[in-house]
Structure formats: structure tokens, C-alpha cells
């Protein structure tokens, strides 16, 4: 098995028996999707309306 990267992104190549006893190589990849910063990396505020959407409109 190979672990490519730590932190929130994990990728493995693994031999694993699936249902039915079939053995094959599978590539297990999982990545935590980051959230937009309320204050973008440039620290420019995401000024929103009074829209109460918890900023989910992405503006």
C-alpha cells in the first residue's frame, strides 16, 4: 500500500477482496473538501447582503 499524502488528502493503492471473493487492486482516495474562507486569502471581506444564508451564496 502506498500512502501519497498526509493531512486531509489520503490516497491508497490496496489489494482488497471485494464481495464475492474477487481480489483486485483498488485505489482508495478520499479528500476533505475545504471550505471557502469568509475572508478570502487576500483578506478581502466577502461582503454579503443581509441575506441570512450563512454566506452559502458564495459572494
Amino acid at each position: 500500500m502506498e500512502r501519497h499524502k498526509a493531512t486531509a488528502y489520503e490516497r491508497y493503492t490496496a489489494q482488497y477482496a471485494r464481495s464475492g471473493g474477487r481480489i483486485g487492486t483498488i485505489y482508495l482516495e478520499i479528500e476533505r473538501v475545504p471550505k471557502e474562507s469568509k475572508y478570502r486569502t487576500s483578506a478581502v471581506p466577502m461582503i454579503k447582503l443581509f441575506c441570512k444564508s450563512l454566506g452559502k451564496c458564495g459572494v
Binding site: 473538501v33 471550505k35 471557502e36 469568509k38 483578506a43 471581506p45 461582503i47
Partner: peptide, 28 residues
């Protein structure tokens, strides 16, 4: 004045990152 306050005090996270070509409201 509003911008200064927002930059200094606002905190927290927004929606999950996504790449679309929409302006606002890509997923809501």
C-alpha cells in the same frame, strides 16, 4: 467603515469549495 469592521472582526468559514462559472449562488 463597514469594510474595516468586517475585516477586523468577521470570522468563520463559508460554503464548501467549488469551481463553477456562475457568479453568485452556484449551489443554493
Amino acid at each position: 467603515t463597514a469594510i474595516k469592521i468586517m475585516v477586523e472582526y468577521g470570522r468563520g468559514e463559508g460554503p464548501h469549495q467549488s469551481k463553477t462559472n456562475r457568479t453568485c449562488g452556484s449551489h443554493i
